[in-house]
Design a binder for these strands. Sequence first.
DNA 1: CAATAACCGAGACGGTACGTCAGGTCTTTTC
DNA 2: GAAAAGACCTGACGTACCGTCTCGGTTATTG
Lengths: 207, 207, 207, 207
Amino acid sequence: MPPPAGRTGRPRSAEAHSAILRATRTALAELGWSRLSMSDVAARAGVARTTLYRRWPGKNELVVDAVAALLDEQLELPDSGSLAGDIEGVVLRFAQLLERPETRSALMAVVAESTRDPALRERVTAAIVDRQKALVLRGRERARARGELPPETDEAASARESDLVFDVIAGTVVHRALVSGEPVDAEWARRFTRMVLGGLPALTAEG
Amino acid sequence: MPPPAGRTGRPRSAEAHSAILRATRTALAELGWSRLSMSDVAARAGVARTTLYRRWPGKNELVVDAVAALLDEQLELPDSGSLAGDIEGVVLRFAQLLERPETRSALMAVVAESTRDPALRERVTAAIVDRQKALVLRGRERARARGELPPETDEAASARESDLVFDVIAGTVVHRALVSGEPVDAEWARRFTRMVLGGLPALTAEG
Amino acid sequence: MPPPAGRTGRPRSAEAHSAILRATRTALAELGWSRLSMSDVAARAGVARTTLYRRWPGKNELVVDAVAALLDEQLELPDSGSLAGDIEGVVLRFAQLLERPETRSALMAVVAESTRDPALRERVTAAIVDRQKALVLRGRERARARGELPPETDEAASARESDLVFDVIAGTVVHRALVSGEPVDAEWARRFTRMVLGGLPALTAEG
Amino acid sequence: MPPPAGRTGRPRSAEAHSAILRATRTALAELGWSRLSMSDVAARAGVARTTLYRRWPGKNELVVDAVAALLDEQLELPDSGSLAGDIEGVVLRFAQLLERPETRSALMAVVAESTRDPALRERVTAAIVDRQKALVLRGRERARARGELPPETDEAASARESDLVFDVIAGTVVHRALVSGEPVDAEWARRFTRMVLGGLPALTAEG
DNA sequence: CAATAACCGAGACGGTACGTCAGGTCTTTTC
DNA sequence: GAAAAGACCTGACGTACCGTCTCGGTTATTG
């Protein structure tokens, strides 16, 4: 949340801000989205309930901010030297994130809520989705520099393709972890990457 | 929900049952998961609130049942004669389902809630996930019969592979439709299918 | 508050009703009007806060009912055999009521609030004022029967006169007790009665 | 409230002082005691909320001051030449004051609050009650000078008597106006005065 | 055909959380 | 150092649902 606009008056406490976000993540992990209450967050953060409402319009917005802060910390793309290595790396990092109960509960819930609330969706897009998508673009760039992928010719087609790859990677990992409920380990990441790069036949060829 | 267990006494009204499920879906589409209330569903169904609790333990269970009924109706796998055609077909059917606001709101919300509640997860798995997975298995069977895929040798590997394909297809479509918020149209389905079958290079080769 | 109108549904608990009124009076005596809170009353009565709101629209209405119940108990007119005796009696009884801290706090506060809220005023009139006024009418009747006052001739004039006497007695006692803050004892009641019956000169004549 | 105490620093704005009292009275008339808020008063007076608390300890004290200023303006005793005329005059003036909505709301509320708060009661006594009582003493003095009442003999008895008359006049008028809710007009004032001077029989004699 | 058992509607019950508002205090910057 | 601005904590407000619990009444099956 942007700090206050004006310059006069008592400034908002910065400690309170981070204490609240921290408390939100803890509560989220323990209780899950629906059982999380503003009162509870306020109590954990050692802050009055009104202070929450002064800074965030409601539960949804608060949680989105709290979750977004999580992704910033850990979503980095390690340069492994090959496209396959990069994909496996980002898949494993993302999966690692989804193993933390606070992220599990929050991410899907935030998405679910955003299917109904356009303002929330925009917030989710800016705070979460776009940040992840940037990773795909960077990996693609590197692969081109290494000659693993042909240089860009049609910009529009290239953007469409990036979007597709992003949906495939993020969607599949989330589905595996949260819907199917199966672990995303190194072996699975290897198989998934082989399929992304070589397609279904390549996968079938060598189990 | 199974109808009554015992045999004596007044039987549960069957009309009430379907009226409730119908009302749940309508309310879900209008209000979304979190704003949906039992009172509201009861009022729409012309039924007392107690009747809901007599048949379902709570909101979660009711909604899962209501959503599961949706999937039964429309999830069929058309035999198009080729593996690519089958994939495109199921992608488009699934996407069509996700366009209906009641499904949009419900599916993710149910999944989100299930990340915290094992009982609910089991219910979701049985009522929704497994039913979708069956489609993948059937398609795979056909492709083998047509010689598009090699015959099964290692059963375990084959199962692992099916699971992966299922996660890729379902996950990507859901992510495209609900997270990225972009339309899943015939053109996209074609590109996605090409990538599933040929991998990233095949996709890049021909925009 | 009239019990529920309809006949269906679970009936309202009668114990709760009296427990609430009792708790209200206790809280009123301890805390006074402005510090009295619905939460507090609910806690004392061993009842959920919502139950209060189900039965009374708000604090004002609840307190009026609670106070009205007080007056019913104690406001009786003893037949002393003479008009002077009757007046002294009712003055002392009323003063005795005003000595109880719950009544002190409540009566004035209720009146104060009613100067702004016509609905509340009506409630106060019906529940408190009219009940007191009836005492004046009864005393007047007796005095006439005893020949202490001339028989009624003009009905309208008689009503006007009763109203005046009522205002004089009730107003003066309240003012003495709550505004001036002086005790209303037997001696004062005797002097006041002499003045009501004989006027200022009679009072001055014999200290 | 006494103007500034210290001598150094920025002096307190005198305009602010009267603006606040004016705003308090206006708000009181519009909203009544309980709905009146410091924030509201501050906003109306064009002053920061802090300024209020710098000058008055709280809401109660502010309102008492605001109301006391009202009484100073209008409570004068016209010399009508007779005791009856003096009483009628003061009754009508007082009633006129009670017709103003700001006074109606405020006076009773202040009294009600003071039944619980000794400090407030003292303030009310000094600022409001004593000032009214002085009128009674002055009227009594005049009546003695004119021979309408016997000269003072017993000082203590005389004080007791004044107190009684004060309670009767103020109490009855307030009760008529605020509790019974009936108008205090010239005709009523005449009847009331006759009763005060001649007692109940005198009243009954001639309707 | 009566008894019984489970249903149904209505609605009160104890709770929890909501989001708002007011009271008073504290902390900044500006005058 | 007063004043304006506004954040802060506390705690009450009235509302909305939750899931449970009586009620009076209504079907079915069983005896």
